[in-house]
Design a binder for these strands. Structure first.
Length: 598
RNA sequence: UGCCUGAUGGUGUAAUGGUAGCACAGGCGACUUUGACUCGCCUAGUCAUGGUUCGAAUCCAUGUCGGGCAGCCA
């Protein structure tokens, strides 16, 4: 069952240009590549979050705007941290985010396919092209499918005298590397012969040495001012099975070595990543150039990560929230994960609009949550059908309406539509209103129900408060009001103005439902820079109420988006809601200038 | 004391030698059977100092401040 509303599929804002798109545009103008190919390369060690949405929209957006392709590739070179659980969630999240927008350019590959031997410019070469995800037996790309190819390239590097087997321990390796402002020292194993390196590397591959005993390193320059060029490690020994590649290997390539070559094998033209990899670019290029590969080389471009106020975007910290049970799971609606946001009811289109509006630069910034919330409200305002619901009910008795009488009222479903439709709701003697809409001692400029005051019940009529009835404990048990039925639509006094209009549901014709009200997970704007982010968790990030809903909500479907009028936007919880047991999540509240002012 | 990278209203972003614009936020007002939406108006910015130029946010120099880099993580 779909949980996605039919949204406006095109991005609400045309993707304006940015420095990376400008580069791509120039390459297109120069006809430098036959096709623009990008990739989204998550490591399957956690769930995707809103920060990844920026990267996904950038990479898929560029492919989309240039008739190109964007491969979904798992960067799975570290089997000890990764798991198939994440492969599945990430694949689903990516497809959800780009559905109806860029799904024509996502590249998968035939299940089980590895790079094939081809001839490029008269030389032997390896290549793995894409198939659409709709193709039978397709799956995303996996860096681990390139382990054979990568191993072959490593042999080639050794033969060219550009890589060597090093026996330094991890600690020694660190010491020899020097410091940012201090050159490193050559490893004593740097000058082994090619034959010896070849032999040792094959024996590493065969499993002759324990974890950590030896590594394969690029022979570059231990005195380089760029520490990533100080003979970086290419392979390390790990006697563990791999979640995708099985138990064939006991040595695994490192990111810098695997990534550039994975890009090459897939024919990626623009390898877009975040700023922390700027220093790695020289290595990315060194490896590809050292191999003298026969096809056009990919190039790396870097942009600033998305940071959002009051939000964490660190897989490690999000994992902590899950393991410490601060939240119920990766898809808890309070989580900034794509699955959490989806479950909360946020449309993919709103996420796309948001990350597009934030832009792409090299400036490390923090975006205010208000920008995100604005994008969500904007999208939902046109998407959501209006309904009446009362979150914290107070009973009203309309003393001049006989018990048992039902007064039909016409209510608009979609006021934003050019051709609005309506439904009928029922006014009865007893109704519920929200406790926020009544004040026994009202503050100044309070437009809602107060002693002796008048207020309009939306779509119905104006009522006047006559009497507050309290129980023995002094708690308000009901409010007794008079309804002025002549102020209903179509009646003579329908134009009568009152300051306040409030929402309501019939007490005798309504539904109970669990409604989950979410608030921000953190109390500070930058929880990520907190010494202990668990200390700034908002203890009130979830409030659960039993709400009274108008009866039509019994037919709510997972893909539906509702505005409970004057309250906010709501959607069924896809995990906990069931027929006969409605559970709604508040996606986001309506803007509230009144409470904000108070 | 190394290398890389950046700096435009409160926030984010545009202007690519020629009128500093847009969005969000904030303020005021209009409209309103949602204190929503919408609309109008307003507040507020080129890190600093020099230089080049008829003209500089943009080019140059110096400085200041910020971010990143020393995993057998990605």
């Amino acid at each position: 069952m779909s949980v996605e509303p039919t949204d406006s599929n095109a991005p609400a804002t045309a993707a304006s240009s940015d420095f990376i798109r400008d580069i791509v545009a120039q390459h297109v103008a120069e006809q430098r590549y036959a096709k623009i190919v990008t990739r989204f390369p998550p490591e399957p060690n956690g769930y995707l979050h809103i920060g990844h949405a920026k990267s996904i929209c950038l990479n898929f957006g560029i492919a989309r705007e240039n008739g190109g392709q964007c491969n979904l590739r798992f960067d799975d070179t570290n089997p000890v941290k990764e798991d198939v659980e994440y492969v599945d969630s990430i694949t689903a999240d990516v497809q959800w985010l780009i559905a109806g927008w860029a799904d024509q350019c996502i590249g998968f590959k035939p299940k089980g396919a590895h790079p094939a031997l081809i001839t490029s410019n008269g030389k032997p070469d390896l290549f793995l092209g894409p198939v659409p995800p709709t193709a039978p037996n397709s799956e995303p790309f996996f860096a681990s499918d390139y382990f054979d190819a990568l191993h072959g390239y490593a042999l080639e590097l050794i033969k060219r005298g550009k890589a060597y087997v090093c026996d330094l321990t991890p600690k020694e390796t660190e010491e020899y590397r020097g410091a940012p402002d201090k050159p490193g020292r050559d490893s004593p194993f740097r000058h082994r012969t090619i034959a010896e390196n070849l032999d040792l590397f094959q024996r590493m591959t065969a499993g002759e040495f324990p974890d950590g005993a030896r590594t394969l390193r690029a022979k570059i320059n231990m005195a380089s001012p760029n520490v990533w060029l100080r003979d970086p490690l290419l392979y390390r020994i790990r006697h563990v099975a791999h979640h995708h590649a099985g138990s064939k290997w006991c040595l695994y390539p490192l990111y810098d070595y695997a990534h550039c070559l994975s890009d090459y094998l897939e024919g990626v033209t623009h390898s877009i990543c975040t700023l922390e990899f700027v220093d790695h670019r020289a290595l990315y290029e060194w490896i590809l150039e050292a191999l003298e590969l026969p096809r056009a080389l990919p190039h790396q471009y870097e942009f600033a990560k998305l940071h959002l106020g009051y939000t964490l975007v660190s897989k490690r910290k999000l994992l902590t929230l899950v393991t410490e049970k601060i939240v119920t799971g990766w898809d808890d609606p309070r989580m900034p994960t794509l699955s959490g946001l989806r479950r909360r009811g946020i449309p993919a289109s709103a996420l796309r609009t948001f990350v597009t509006s934030v832009g792409v630069t090299k400036f490390d910034s923090v975006t205010e949550v208000a920008v995100f919330e604005n994008a969500v409200r904007n999208e939902l305002n046109t998407l959501a059908v209006r309904r009446l619901a009362v979150l914290k009910p107070i009973k009203i008795v309309l003393t001049n309406i006989p018990a048992g009488e039902t007064i039909p009222c016409e209510a608009t479903n979609d006021p934003q539509s050019e051709t609005p439709t309506a439904r009928t709701i029922t006014l009865t003697r007893e109704v519920f209103i929200d406790s926020d809409d009544f004040a026994e001692v009202p503050p100044p400029k309070y437009f809602r129900l107060k002693p002796g005051g008048e207020v309009r019940l939306k779509y119905a009529c104006i009522i006047k408060l006559d009497e507050i009835v309290k129980d023995a404990a002094g708690q308000i048990s009901e409010l007794r009001c008079t309804a002025d039925l002549t102020t209903r639509a179509g009646q003579p006094n329908s134009d009568k103005k009152v300051k306040g209009t409030i929402h309501w549901v019939s007490a005798t014709q309504c539904l109970d439902a669990e409604v989950r009200l979410y608030d921000r997970l953190f109390n500070v704007a930058e929880p990520g820079s907190e010494e202990d982010f668990l200390k700034v968790v908002n203890p009130h990030s979830l409030e659960v109420v039993t709400a009274k809903l108008e009866p039509s909500l019994a037919a709510a479907a997972l893909a539906d988006r509702f505005q409970f009028e004057r309250i906010g936007y709501f959607a069924l919880d896809p995990r906990d809601s069931a027929p006969g047991k409605l559970v709604f999540n508040r996606t986001i509240s309506l803007k509230d200038a009144w409470t904000a002012k108070k």
